[in-house]
Design a binder for these strands. Structure first.
Lengths: 209, 209
DNA sequence: ATATAATATGAGCAAATGCTCGTTTTTCAA
DNA sequence: TTGAAAAACGAGCATTTGCTCATATTATAT
Protein backbone atom coordinates (compact mmCIF):
# COMPACT_ATOMS: atom_id res chain seq x y z
CA UNK A 1 0.00 0.00 0.00
CA UNK A 2 2.49 2.59 1.14
CA UNK A 3 5.13 2.71 -1.56
CA UNK A 4 7.94 5.21 -1.21
CA UNK A 5 10.57 5.88 -3.87
CA UNK A 6 9.21 9.32 -4.51
CA UNK A 7 12.75 10.52 -4.14
CA UNK A 8 15.65 8.97 -5.96
CA UNK A 9 18.00 10.34 -3.32
CA UNK A 10 17.12 11.86 0.04
CA UNK A 11 18.84 15.23 0.52
CA UNK A 12 21.07 15.19 3.60
CA UNK A 13 22.21 18.78 3.57
CA UNK A 14 20.06 21.85 4.08
CA UNK A 15 20.93 22.97 0.56
CA UNK A 16 19.39 19.87 -0.93
CA UNK A 17 16.27 20.02 1.21
CA UNK A 18 15.65 23.60 0.21
CA UNK A 19 16.13 22.69 -3.42
CA UNK A 20 13.57 19.91 -3.20
CA UNK A 21 11.13 22.32 -1.57
CA UNK A 22 11.74 24.93 -4.27
CA UNK A 23 11.25 22.35 -7.00
CA UNK A 24 7.94 21.25 -5.50
CA UNK A 25 6.77 24.83 -5.13
CA UNK A 26 7.75 25.70 -8.69
CA UNK A 27 6.05 22.57 -9.99
CA UNK A 28 2.83 23.41 -8.14
CA UNK A 29 2.82 26.86 -9.70
CA UNK A 30 3.48 25.60 -13.20
CA UNK A 31 0.97 22.78 -12.94
CA UNK A 32 -1.63 25.34 -11.91
CA UNK A 33 -0.71 27.66 -14.75
CA UNK A 34 -0.41 25.32 -17.70
CA UNK A 35 -1.34 21.85 -16.48
CA UNK A 36 0.77 18.79 -15.83
CA UNK A 37 1.57 17.77 -19.39
CA UNK A 38 2.54 21.22 -20.58
CA UNK A 39 4.74 21.89 -17.58
CA UNK A 40 8.14 20.70 -18.83
CA UNK A 41 10.75 19.50 -16.39
CA UNK A 42 13.14 22.10 -17.78
CA UNK A 43 10.64 24.84 -17.03
CA UNK A 44 10.14 23.52 -13.50
CA UNK A 45 13.88 23.52 -12.90
CA UNK A 46 14.19 27.02 -14.34
CA UNK A 47 11.39 28.36 -12.16
CA UNK A 48 13.00 26.74 -9.13
CA UNK A 49 16.23 28.43 -10.14
CA UNK A 50 18.15 25.20 -10.40
CA UNK A 51 19.33 22.86 -13.16
CA UNK A 52 17.56 19.87 -14.68
CA UNK A 53 20.45 17.80 -13.45
CA UNK A 54 19.68 18.73 -9.87
CA UNK A 55 16.00 18.07 -10.38
CA UNK A 56 16.66 14.58 -11.64
CA UNK A 57 19.12 13.95 -8.86
CA UNK A 58 16.21 13.95 -6.44
CA UNK A 59 13.22 12.97 -8.54
CA UNK A 60 13.39 9.84 -10.70
CA UNK A 61 10.93 11.27 -13.24
CA UNK A 62 8.32 13.91 -13.83
CA UNK A 63 5.47 11.96 -12.35
CA UNK A 64 7.36 11.56 -9.10
CA UNK A 65 7.09 15.31 -8.66
CA UNK A 66 3.34 15.08 -9.01
CA UNK A 67 3.28 12.14 -6.62
CA UNK A 68 5.30 14.04 -4.05
CA UNK A 69 2.92 16.98 -4.29
CA UNK A 70 -0.02 14.64 -4.02
CA UNK A 71 1.46 13.02 -0.94
CA UNK A 72 2.09 16.37 0.68
CA UNK A 73 -1.42 17.68 0.05
CA UNK A 74 -2.90 14.41 1.16
CA UNK A 75 -1.13 14.53 4.50
CA UNK A 76 -2.04 18.16 5.06
CA UNK A 77 -5.69 17.65 4.20
CA UNK A 78 -5.94 14.49 6.27
CA UNK A 79 -4.43 16.41 9.15
CA UNK A 80 -6.98 19.19 8.74
CA UNK A 81 -9.86 16.76 8.87
CA UNK A 82 -8.47 14.80 11.79
CA UNK A 83 -7.58 17.70 14.03
CA UNK A 84 -9.35 20.72 12.56
CA UNK A 85 -12.76 20.16 14.15
CA UNK A 86 -14.75 17.66 16.20
CA UNK A 87 -18.36 17.05 17.25
CA UNK A 88 -19.59 19.98 19.29
CA UNK A 89 -22.75 19.67 21.40
CA UNK A 90 -23.21 23.43 21.31
CA UNK A 91 -23.19 23.74 17.54
CA UNK A 92 -25.88 22.55 15.15
CA UNK A 93 -25.30 20.66 11.94
CA UNK A 94 -25.43 23.74 9.74
CA UNK A 95 -22.83 25.61 11.74
CA UNK A 96 -20.64 22.57 11.88
CA UNK A 97 -20.79 21.90 8.19
CA UNK A 98 -20.36 25.55 7.39
CA UNK A 99 -17.12 25.54 9.33
CA UNK A 100 -15.87 22.46 7.53
CA UNK A 101 -16.67 24.00 4.15
CA UNK A 102 -15.00 27.26 5.09
CA UNK A 103 -11.78 25.64 6.24
CA UNK A 104 -11.65 23.38 3.22
CA UNK A 105 -12.10 26.36 0.93
CA UNK A 106 -9.24 28.17 2.62
CA UNK A 107 -7.05 25.10 2.40
CA UNK A 108 -7.81 24.77 -1.29
CA UNK A 109 -7.32 28.46 -2.00
CA UNK A 110 -3.87 28.46 -0.46
CA UNK A 111 -2.54 25.67 -2.68
CA UNK A 112 -2.27 26.51 -6.36
CA UNK A 113 -1.25 23.00 -7.37
CA UNK A 114 -4.14 21.30 -5.62
CA UNK A 115 -6.50 21.60 -8.56
CA UNK A 116 -4.26 19.72 -10.97
CA UNK A 117 -3.35 17.04 -8.48
CA UNK A 118 -6.82 16.16 -7.27
CA UNK A 119 -9.12 17.32 -10.02
CA UNK A 120 -7.14 16.32 -13.09
CA UNK A 121 -5.37 18.35 -15.67
CA UNK A 122 -6.10 21.65 -17.30
CA UNK A 123 -8.77 22.62 -19.75
CA UNK A 124 -7.49 24.72 -22.65
CA UNK A 125 -8.32 28.42 -22.67
CA UNK A 126 -10.46 28.67 -25.83
CA UNK A 127 -12.33 25.52 -24.88
CA UNK A 128 -13.10 26.88 -21.44
CA UNK A 129 -14.50 29.98 -23.07
CA UNK A 130 -16.69 27.98 -25.39
CA UNK A 131 -17.96 25.87 -22.52
CA UNK A 132 -18.63 28.93 -20.40
CA UNK A 133 -20.59 30.59 -23.15
CA UNK A 134 -22.76 27.52 -23.42
CA UNK A 135 -23.27 27.30 -19.68
CA UNK A 136 -24.30 30.94 -19.55
CA UNK A 137 -27.01 30.15 -22.05
CA UNK A 138 -28.14 27.16 -20.02
CA UNK A 139 -28.14 29.19 -16.81
CA UNK A 140 -30.28 31.82 -18.50
CA UNK A 141 -32.70 29.12 -19.58
CA UNK A 142 -32.94 27.69 -16.07
CA UNK A 143 -33.34 31.20 -14.73
CA UNK A 144 -36.38 31.74 -16.91
CA UNK A 145 -37.78 28.41 -15.76
CA UNK A 146 -37.32 29.54 -12.18
CA UNK A 147 -38.92 32.88 -12.93
CA UNK A 148 -41.99 30.97 -14.01
CA UNK A 149 -42.12 28.62 -11.05
CA UNK A 150 -40.79 30.94 -8.35
CA UNK A 151 -42.12 34.39 -9.29
CA UNK A 152 -41.45 35.90 -5.86
CA UNK A 153 -37.70 35.34 -5.89
CA UNK A 154 -35.48 38.39 -6.27
CA UNK A 155 -34.03 38.45 -9.83
CA UNK A 156 -30.41 38.80 -8.71
CA UNK A 157 -30.74 36.01 -6.19
CA UNK A 158 -32.58 33.93 -8.75
CA UNK A 159 -29.76 34.22 -11.24
CA UNK A 160 -27.22 33.20 -8.63
CA UNK A 161 -29.37 30.25 -7.62
CA UNK A 162 -29.74 29.20 -11.23
CA UNK A 163 -25.99 29.37 -11.69
CA UNK A 164 -25.34 27.31 -8.57
CA UNK A 165 -27.93 24.75 -9.60
CA UNK A 166 -26.51 24.33 -13.07
CA UNK A 167 -22.94 24.16 -11.85
CA UNK A 168 -23.94 21.61 -9.23
CA UNK A 169 -25.55 19.32 -11.72
CA UNK A 170 -22.67 19.76 -14.14
CA UNK A 171 -20.09 19.02 -11.48
CA UNK A 172 -21.83 16.04 -9.93
CA UNK A 173 -23.03 14.41 -13.11
CA UNK A 174 -19.86 12.33 -13.51
CA UNK A 175 -20.69 10.68 -10.18
CA UNK A 176 -23.97 9.44 -11.54
CA UNK A 177 -22.61 8.06 -14.78
CA UNK A 178 -20.66 4.79 -14.78
CA UNK A 179 -17.68 4.09 -16.99
CA UNK A 180 -19.77 1.98 -19.32
CA UNK A 181 -22.13 4.88 -19.93
CA UNK A 182 -24.98 3.58 -17.78
CA UNK A 183 -26.68 5.79 -15.21
CA UNK A 184 -26.62 5.22 -11.46
CA UNK A 185 -30.16 6.29 -10.71
CA UNK A 186 -29.72 6.30 -6.91
CA UNK A 187 -27.00 8.90 -7.12
CA UNK A 188 -28.81 10.87 -9.79
CA UNK A 189 -31.91 11.03 -7.61
CA UNK A 190 -29.78 12.19 -4.73
CA UNK A 191 -28.43 15.01 -6.87
CA UNK A 192 -31.97 15.98 -7.77
CA UNK A 193 -32.89 16.08 -4.09
CA UNK A 194 -29.83 18.15 -3.35
CA UNK A 195 -30.80 20.85 -5.81
CA UNK A 196 -34.51 20.60 -5.04
CA UNK A 197 -33.85 21.17 -1.33
CA UNK A 198 -31.71 24.15 -2.13
CA UNK A 199 -34.28 25.72 -4.43
CA UNK A 200 -37.02 25.09 -1.89
CA UNK A 201 -34.94 26.85 0.75
CA UNK A 202 -34.34 29.76 -1.57
CA UNK A 203 -38.03 29.95 -2.47
CA UNK A 204 -38.98 30.29 1.17
CA UNK A 205 -36.20 32.69 2.00
CA UNK A 206 -36.04 34.97 -1.04
CA UNK A 207 -33.26 37.25 0.13
CA UNK A 208 -30.35 36.98 2.49
CA UNK A 209 -27.79 39.53 3.59
CA UNK B 1 -16.61 35.68 -32.21
CA UNK B 2 -17.62 32.81 -34.45
CA UNK B 3 -14.43 31.59 -36.10
CA UNK B 4 -14.64 28.63 -38.42
CA UNK B 5 -11.61 26.92 -39.96
CA UNK B 6 -12.19 23.78 -37.96
CA UNK B 7 -11.78 21.93 -41.20
CA UNK B 8 -8.88 22.46 -43.52
CA UNK B 9 -10.92 21.09 -46.39
CA UNK B 10 -14.65 20.40 -46.48
CA UNK B 11 -15.38 16.87 -47.73
CA UNK B 12 -17.54 16.94 -50.86
CA UNK B 13 -18.04 13.25 -51.36
CA UNK B 14 -19.90 10.88 -49.03
CA UNK B 15 -16.67 8.99 -48.48
CA UNK B 16 -15.00 12.05 -47.03
CA UNK B 17 -17.93 12.97 -44.84
CA UNK B 18 -18.05 9.49 -43.37
CA UNK B 19 -14.33 9.63 -42.75
CA UNK B 20 -14.62 12.89 -40.87
CA UNK B 21 -17.43 11.39 -38.78
CA UNK B 22 -15.37 8.28 -38.04
CA UNK B 23 -12.37 10.38 -37.06
CA UNK B 24 -14.49 12.42 -34.65
CA UNK B 25 -16.00 9.31 -33.15
CA UNK B 26 -12.63 7.63 -32.73
CA UNK B 27 -11.20 10.79 -31.18
CA UNK B 28 -14.06 11.01 -28.68
CA UNK B 29 -13.44 7.42 -27.62
CA UNK B 30 -9.70 7.87 -27.25
CA UNK B 31 -10.01 11.18 -25.44
CA UNK B 32 -12.35 9.49 -22.98
CA UNK B 33 -9.99 6.55 -22.53
CA UNK B 34 -6.61 8.23 -22.19
CA UNK B 35 -7.20 11.98 -22.24
CA UNK B 36 -6.47 14.56 -24.90
CA UNK B 37 -2.68 14.75 -24.60
CA UNK B 38 -2.10 11.01 -24.57
CA UNK B 39 -4.38 10.42 -27.53
CA UNK B 40 -1.95 10.57 -30.45
CA UNK B 41 -3.14 11.60 -33.88
CA UNK B 42 -1.75 8.35 -35.25
CA UNK B 43 -3.85 6.39 -32.76
CA UNK B 44 -6.95 8.38 -33.67
CA UNK B 45 -6.39 7.68 -37.35
CA UNK B 46 -5.78 4.00 -36.64
CA UNK B 47 -8.97 3.69 -34.54
CA UNK B 48 -10.90 5.43 -37.31
CA UNK B 49 -9.41 2.92 -39.73
CA UNK B 50 -7.84 5.57 -41.89
CA UNK B 51 -4.39 7.08 -42.42
CA UNK B 52 -2.79 10.07 -40.72
CA UNK B 53 -2.58 11.65 -44.13
CA UNK B 54 -6.36 11.55 -44.48
CA UNK B 55 -6.81 12.88 -40.98
CA UNK B 56 -4.63 15.88 -41.70
CA UNK B 57 -6.32 16.42 -45.01
CA UNK B 58 -9.43 17.48 -43.11
CA UNK B 59 -8.13 18.69 -39.77
CA UNK B 60 -5.34 21.28 -39.68
CA UNK B 61 -4.08 20.00 -36.32
CA UNK B 62 -4.93 17.93 -33.31
CA UNK B 63 -6.70 20.69 -31.46
CA UNK B 64 -9.04 21.23 -34.38
CA UNK B 65 -10.41 17.76 -33.70
CA UNK B 66 -11.16 18.73 -30.13
CA UNK B 67 -12.71 21.98 -31.32
CA UNK B 68 -14.93 20.17 -33.78
CA UNK B 69 -16.11 17.81 -31.04
CA UNK B 70 -16.69 20.76 -28.76
CA UNK B 71 -18.72 22.51 -31.42
CA UNK B 72 -20.82 19.42 -32.04
CA UNK B 73 -21.58 18.81 -28.36
CA UNK B 74 -22.31 22.47 -27.86
CA UNK B 75 -24.91 22.51 -30.61
CA UNK B 76 -26.53 19.31 -29.41
CA UNK B 77 -26.71 20.46 -25.80
CA UNK B 78 -27.98 23.88 -26.76
CA UNK B 79 -30.64 22.19 -28.82
CA UNK B 80 -31.66 20.00 -25.88
CA UNK B 81 -32.09 23.00 -23.63
CA UNK B 82 -33.93 25.04 -26.23
CA UNK B 83 -36.41 22.43 -27.33
CA UNK B 84 -36.26 19.69 -24.69
CA UNK B 85 -38.63 21.25 -22.17
CA UNK B 86 -40.55 24.41 -21.39
CA UNK B 87 -42.44 25.97 -18.46
CA UNK B 88 -45.38 23.76 -17.53
CA UNK B 89 -48.20 25.11 -15.33
CA UNK B 90 -49.10 21.59 -14.27
CA UNK B 91 -45.62 20.68 -12.99
CA UNK B 92 -43.95 22.04 -9.89
CA UNK B 93 -40.37 23.22 -9.66
CA UNK B 94 -39.06 19.92 -8.31
CA UNK B 95 -40.58 17.85 -11.09
CA UNK B 96 -39.37 20.33 -13.65
CA UNK B 97 -35.84 20.42 -12.41
CA UNK B 98 -35.78 16.66 -11.97
CA UNK B 99 -36.62 16.29 -15.62
CA UNK B 100 -33.90 18.66 -16.68
CA UNK B 101 -31.34 16.80 -14.57
CA UNK B 102 -32.46 13.45 -15.91
CA UNK B 103 -32.22 14.49 -19.54
CA UNK B 104 -28.88 16.12 -19.02
CA UNK B 105 -27.54 13.00 -17.37
CA UNK B 106 -28.69 10.90 -20.30
CA UNK B 107 -27.14 13.32 -22.75
CA UNK B 108 -23.87 13.20 -20.87
CA UNK B 109 -23.90 9.41 -20.49
CA UNK B 110 -24.33 8.90 -24.22
CA UNK B 111 -21.24 10.93 -25.17
CA UNK B 112 -17.92 9.45 -24.06
CA UNK B 113 -15.88 12.44 -25.22
CA UNK B 114 -17.97 14.99 -23.35
CA UNK B 115 -16.00 14.71 -20.16
CA UNK B 116 -12.68 15.63 -21.72
CA UNK B 117 -14.10 18.43 -23.82
CA UNK B 118 -16.05 20.23 -21.13
CA UNK B 119 -14.44 19.15 -17.90
CA UNK B 120 -10.79 19.16 -18.89
CA UNK B 121 -8.33 16.38 -19.34
CA UNK B 122 -7.83 13.11 -17.58
CA UNK B 123 -6.50 12.40 -14.13
CA UNK B 124 -3.88 9.64 -14.00
CA UNK B 125 -4.93 6.28 -12.60
CA UNK B 126 -2.68 6.02 -9.51
CA UNK B 127 -3.41 9.63 -8.62
CA UNK B 128 -7.15 9.06 -8.86
CA UNK B 129 -6.76 6.13 -6.49
CA UNK B 130 -4.78 8.19 -4.00
CA UNK B 131 -7.35 10.96 -4.15
CA UNK B 132 -10.20 8.53 -3.73
CA UNK B 133 -8.60 6.94 -0.73
CA UNK B 134 -8.29 10.35 0.87
CA UNK B 135 -11.87 11.26 0.06
CA UNK B 136 -13.12 8.03 1.55
CA UNK B 137 -11.41 9.00 4.80
CA UNK B 138 -12.98 12.44 4.67
CA UNK B 139 -16.40 11.01 3.92
CA UNK B 140 -16.05 8.69 6.91
CA UNK B 141 -15.15 11.65 9.06
CA UNK B 142 -18.17 13.64 7.89
CA UNK B 143 -20.32 10.58 8.38
CA UNK B 144 -19.30 10.39 12.01
CA UNK B 145 -20.03 14.09 12.40
CA UNK B 146 -23.48 13.47 10.96
CA UNK B 147 -24.02 10.49 13.24
CA UNK B 148 -23.47 12.85 16.14
CA UNK B 149 -25.74 15.61 14.89
CA UNK B 150 -28.37 13.52 13.13
CA UNK B 151 -28.66 10.36 15.24
CA UNK B 152 -32.01 9.31 13.72
CA UNK B 153 -30.75 8.99 10.17
CA UNK B 154 -30.42 5.51 8.70
CA UNK B 155 -26.69 4.55 8.56
CA UNK B 156 -26.77 3.58 4.89
CA UNK B 157 -28.57 6.73 3.89
CA UNK B 158 -26.27 8.73 6.13
CA UNK B 159 -23.18 7.43 4.38
CA UNK B 160 -24.63 8.26 0.98
CA UNK B 161 -25.55 11.73 2.17
CA UNK B 162 -22.06 12.24 3.55
CA UNK B 163 -20.57 11.17 0.24
CA UNK B 164 -22.83 13.49 -1.74
CA UNK B 165 -22.04 16.38 0.60
CA UNK B 166 -18.30 15.89 0.37
CA UNK B 167 -18.35 15.46 -3.39
CA UNK B 168 -20.52 18.54 -3.73
CA UNK B 169 -18.16 20.72 -1.78
CA UNK B 170 -15.16 19.25 -3.57
CA UNK B 171 -16.71 19.81 -6.98
CA UNK B 172 -18.00 23.31 -6.36
CA UNK B 173 -15.03 24.65 -4.45
CA UNK B 174 -13.26 25.88 -7.61
CA UNK B 175 -16.23 28.18 -8.22
CA UNK B 176 -15.66 29.90 -4.90
CA UNK B 177 -11.93 30.40 -5.33
CA UNK B 178 -10.63 33.10 -7.67
CA UNK B 179 -7.55 32.75 -9.82
CA UNK B 180 -5.51 34.88 -7.44
CA UNK B 181 -6.30 32.51 -4.58
CA UNK B 182 -8.84 34.75 -2.86
CA UNK B 183 -12.21 33.42 -1.78
CA UNK B 184 -15.56 34.56 -3.17
CA UNK B 185 -17.53 34.45 0.05
CA UNK B 186 -20.93 34.97 -1.60
CA UNK B 187 -20.54 31.82 -3.65
CA UNK B 188 -19.02 29.89 -0.77
CA UNK B 189 -21.99 30.79 1.42
CA UNK B 190 -24.31 29.66 -1.33
CA UNK B 191 -22.55 26.30 -1.42
CA UNK B 192 -22.97 26.03 2.33
CA UNK B 193 -26.68 26.74 1.98
CA UNK B 194 -26.93 24.16 -0.77
CA UNK B 195 -25.52 21.39 1.38
CA UNK B 196 -27.29 22.58 4.53
CA UNK B 197 -30.67 22.47 2.77
CA UNK B 198 -29.97 19.00 1.54
CA UNK B 199 -28.94 17.71 4.94
CA UNK B 200 -31.96 19.33 6.54
CA UNK B 201 -34.19 17.61 4.02
CA UNK B 202 -32.52 14.29 4.71
CA UNK B 203 -32.81 14.79 8.46
CA UNK B 204 -36.55 15.27 8.18
CA UNK B 205 -37.03 12.47 5.70
CA UNK B 206 -34.68 9.73 6.93
CA UNK B 207 -35.48 7.14 4.26
CA UNK B 208 -36.77 7.14 0.76
CA UNK B 209 -37.69 4.30 -1.53
C1' DA C 1 44.49 21.02 5.28
C1' DT C 2 42.54 17.34 2.86
C1' DA C 3 39.86 13.49 1.52
C1' DT C 4 35.42 12.03 0.75
C1' DA C 5 30.75 12.44 0.26
C1' DA C 6 27.08 15.38 -1.23
C1' DT C 7 25.42 18.44 -4.42
C1' DA C 8 25.21 21.15 -8.78
C1' DT C 9 25.50 21.79 -13.72
C1' DG C 10 23.93 21.75 -18.64
C1' DA C 11 25.12 19.91 -23.22
C1' DG C 12 23.09 16.64 -25.62
C1' DC C 13 20.94 11.76 -26.40
C1' DA C 14 16.92 8.88 -27.41
C1' DA C 15 12.29 8.49 -27.97
C1' DA C 16 7.85 10.20 -28.92
C1' DT C 17 4.80 12.69 -31.73
C1' DG C 18 2.61 16.27 -34.52
C1' DC C 19 2.52 16.96 -39.10
C1' DT C 20 4.13 17.24 -44.44
C1' DC C 21 4.43 15.84 -49.01
C1' DG C 22 4.98 13.11 -53.01
C1' DT C 23 2.49 9.50 -54.76
C1' DT C 24 -1.36 6.44 -55.68
C1' DT C 25 -6.24 5.37 -55.91
C1' DT C 26 -11.08 6.49 -56.40
C1' DT C 27 -14.95 9.19 -58.01
C1' DC C 28 -17.62 11.35 -61.44
C1' DA C 29 -18.90 14.69 -64.94
C1' DA C 30 -18.62 15.26 -69.80
C1' DT D 1 -13.82 6.47 -72.11
C1' DT D 2 -11.19 9.77 -70.19
C1' DG D 3 -9.35 13.40 -67.65
C1' DA D 4 -9.35 16.12 -63.75
C1' DA D 5 -10.65 16.78 -59.12
C1' DA D 6 -11.17 14.62 -54.72
C1' DA D 7 -9.64 11.50 -51.50
C1' DA D 8 -6.33 8.19 -49.46
C1' DC D 9 -1.96 6.77 -48.17
C1' DG D 10 2.21 6.31 -45.07
C1' DA D 11 7.29 6.93 -44.87
C1' DG D 12 9.77 10.08 -42.68
C1' DC D 13 11.00 15.04 -41.26
C1' DA D 14 11.28 18.44 -37.60
C1' DT D 15 10.51 19.48 -33.16
C1' DT D 16 9.76 18.75 -28.52
C1' DT D 17 10.89 16.83 -24.20
C1' DG D 18 12.03 13.60 -20.58
C1' DC D 19 16.14 12.32 -18.91
C1' DT D 20 21.55 10.88 -18.55
C1' DC D 21 26.20 11.48 -17.63
C1' DA D 22 30.68 13.32 -17.29
C1' DT D 23 32.48 17.02 -14.95
C1' DA D 24 32.72 20.82 -11.62
C1' DT D 25 31.70 22.78 -7.14
C1' DT D 26 30.56 22.85 -2.21
C1' DA D 27 30.16 20.98 2.42
C1' DT D 28 31.88 18.28 6.30
C1' DA D 29 34.38 15.14 9.14
C1' DT D 30 38.98 14.19 10.78
Amino acid sequence: MTEEAHLRRVPRQTRGQQRVARILSAAAQLFAEVGFEAATTNAIAARAETSIGSLYQFFPNKEAILDALSKQYKEELRDLFEHGFHPNPNADMDTMFGMVAQMTAEFYAARPGFQVVFYGSHITEPLAEAADELYQAIIARIDSLMAFHLPDLDPGQRMLSAAISVKTVKSLLPLAVNNDGSINQVILDEIKLLVASYLRARAQQPEVT
